[in-house]
Amino acid sequence: MLRAVTMGAGKLLGTNLRARRDEQGISLSELARRSGIAKGTLSQLESGAGNPTIETVFSLSNALGVPVSLLLTDSPPSDVVLVRSADIDVLSGEAIDLRLLRRLEHPGGLFEIYNQEIRPDAVQHSDGHPGTEHHVVLTGKMRVTTGGRTEELGAGDYLAFRASGPHHYEAVDGPVRSVLLLEYPPDVYPAPPGPHPVS
């Protein structure tokens, strides 16, 4: 079976955010306190309104202790899944546009695959989050700084690092297209009991 997956980030985020909050039994006020996001903004997001940024979604992920993909995807059951990047809403940050292509869950952990584009003349900062980041540059030149170390990656280059500490990216001499794989070990976001879906 072949199934094309489309994603409306705002509506899915709203639905999933409310579901995760209800599961954990926390109020909007408590989520606002944990995430540093205003209660009114959270209310808008839960209603499917607004245009969430990368920073907002990662703050909510950290506050709820769930992976980003749990907030942004549904789970299409299929043997073959076709994802058209053009059909996926863009999650934008200071310098990066991300499209979540796939969430892969199995007993050994969780993986999220993103189409990542880095815009020139800006730097994308991250305070850190769980897991390991894997980057493969498709076009352009990307500069990554993490753990006091800076590396420049060209087309075909690969870099991996633990993402728990501050890190940032920037495009060098024009835009960058790359694949970002976020890898979470099972002790960070344990898989639920029973069958382990590939979603």
Rank of each mutant, 00 (worst) to 15 (best):
I118M: 08
Y189R: 04
V57I: 08
A155H: 10
T132K: 14
L70N: 13
F161C: 00
L138A: 12
S164V: 11
V179A: 09
S59H: 08
G25C: 06
I37W: 04
R34A: 10
L182S: 10
F111Y: 13
T145G: 02
A63M: 07
G140W: 10
L60W: 00
T73Y: 03
K39W: 07
M7E: 12
A163Y: 08
L60A: 04
D157T: 09
D89M: 01
G156V: 09
A19S: 07
D22Y: 00
G10T: 13
L64A: 01
G36V: 13
P67V: 09
Q124W: 07
V83W: 02
A38V: 02
D173S: 12
V198F: 08
P67R: 13
F161Q: 03
E105I: 08
P193Q: 10
D127L: 10
G108K: 12
S59D: 13
P67N: 11
G25S: 07
D74L: 11
A171S: 14
D87K: 03
T146W: 13
R149Q: 14
E105N: 14
E133C: 05
R34F: 03
P197A: 10
G147C: 06
G147M: 05
L17D: 06
F161A: 01
S69R: 00
A160D: 11
L104M: 15
L182Y: 01
L64M: 02
L82R: 04
L12C: 08
